[in-house]
Amino acid sequence: MDEQKHHIVDYLTNIKVWVALAVLTILTVWVSEFNLATLTVAVALSIATIKAILVLSYFMHLKFDSKILIIMVLVTLVIFLSMIIFTFFDYLYRK
């Protein structure tokens, strides 16, 4: 693993990300007060996705890693999203 460089994320960035995560968590709770009907899941998942991206990029250093790893995560994300969308083809149209 010689080509691997160690990238160090500075404290300030880490703290910013942490604050962002906390705010997004509060947002999730706040949004749940409203009745968004069919959008409920979409909104909750969108916020969760942003949080996951933050964690992956900074805390797990994906942003500074080789492209192939990023592609792997993206494919995973696409598959995961499709699973949810396909499941909702059932729930949204069920009589």
Binding site: F89, D90, R94
Partner: peptide
């Protein structure tokens, strides 16, 4: 491997899944 992720619904054609979902699967 990739398409295989999106065909699971064909096990559920008779279990009360919605019409559009059945056609898509």
């Amino acid at each position: 491997a990739f398409i295989g992720y999106f065909v699971w619904g064909h096990h559920m054609f008779t279990s009360g899944m919605s019409g559009p979902a059945r056609v898509i699967f």
